[in-house]
Design a binder for these strands. Structure first.
Lengths: 145, 145
DNA sequence: GCCATTTGATTGTATATGCAATCATAAGCT
DNA sequence: AGCTTATGATTGCATATACAATCAAATGGC
């Protein structure tokens, strides 16, 4: 039962690949928040955009994308869907290429109602992952940004 | 300039949401591996499945999904695409509901050629995130699994 | 042996994601 | 002014992801 170079590399990937782990945790974490938010008809990906809009007042897509490391085309379609639901509105700008957006009253109200669900999911995930990891995650994410 | 309860909660989410960070890192990390693997026509999500198949010999979908916290319907379609490309094949089973799959020779060869690209991306990500985070990530991911 | 239940997987539908190409406007150069 | 380049965003296309519903086969009780 000899191990080839190939098998050794496969073991190294299976046991050490960072992408495998980050992606797995992403699925687990996303599912917990999504489950908690589901009664509101809201997904965590969308809540993040609502929060960015709430923080920024009027948000420029390129700026949001840079902060979140999100492709502009991805945000474009997310905003489109959320605009269709009446949660966001695009405001006119001097630069006529720009499409800055902001929360509607309805979007703000949705976000307000989403806060308890977020808190529940946040607590659940924190206890699942542990404080140590959560702290390091915060540091690392800030550094990457 | 008073801060409402709402604004305080929004700040708490913007500054502390675990999902925001895990999802952001997931995008950054996935993009690095995908970029490195692109010349091979392979994505890291698919490479993970090839590796699982290589490790398991013949892989049962439900078992792969449990390990990776992946929905079975997601894997079903991923395998479908990879089967269409000739990288995986479904093998018959005594239980006629089952659809265990394994690497084809072509899939194995692709995986062999993908190893250097994986190593490059892995090194790049490790230096970006730092050894401390990577270690904690491994612990945490093992615990969650 | 038959029916209800459980189990393994696929299909319908929707969102999320990114790359490449495109479009429209702005900015800069001459 | 007019041309080129840069910038902000959308569109075409493909993959990834999950929930709900369904399908098919195995299993368990009787």
């Amino acid at each position: 039962m000899v191990k080839t170079k190939f098998d050794e590399s496969i073991d190294a990937i299976a046991n050490g690949c960072i992408a495998v782990r980050v992606r797995m945790l992403n699925r687990v974490v996303t599912n917990i928040y999504d489950e908690s938010l589901r009664p509101l008809g809201l997904k965590v990906s969308q809540m993040n955009i609502l929060v960015a809009a709430a923080k920024m007042g009027t948000a420029r897509p390129a700026e949001v994308c840079e902060r979140l490391h999100l492709d502009v085309s991805t945000l474009s379609r997310n905003v489109e869907r959320m605009q269709a639901r009446g949660w966001l509105e695009v405001v006119p700008d001097a630069d006529r290429r720009a499409q800055p957006f902001r929360l509607t009253a309805e979007g703000r109200e949705l976000l307000r109602r989403a806060i308890p669900a977020w808190k529940k999911a946040q607590a659940q995930v924190k206890s699942l992952l542990g404080d140590g990891f959560v702290h390091r995650l915060a540091e690392t994410a800030n550094r990457v940004r």
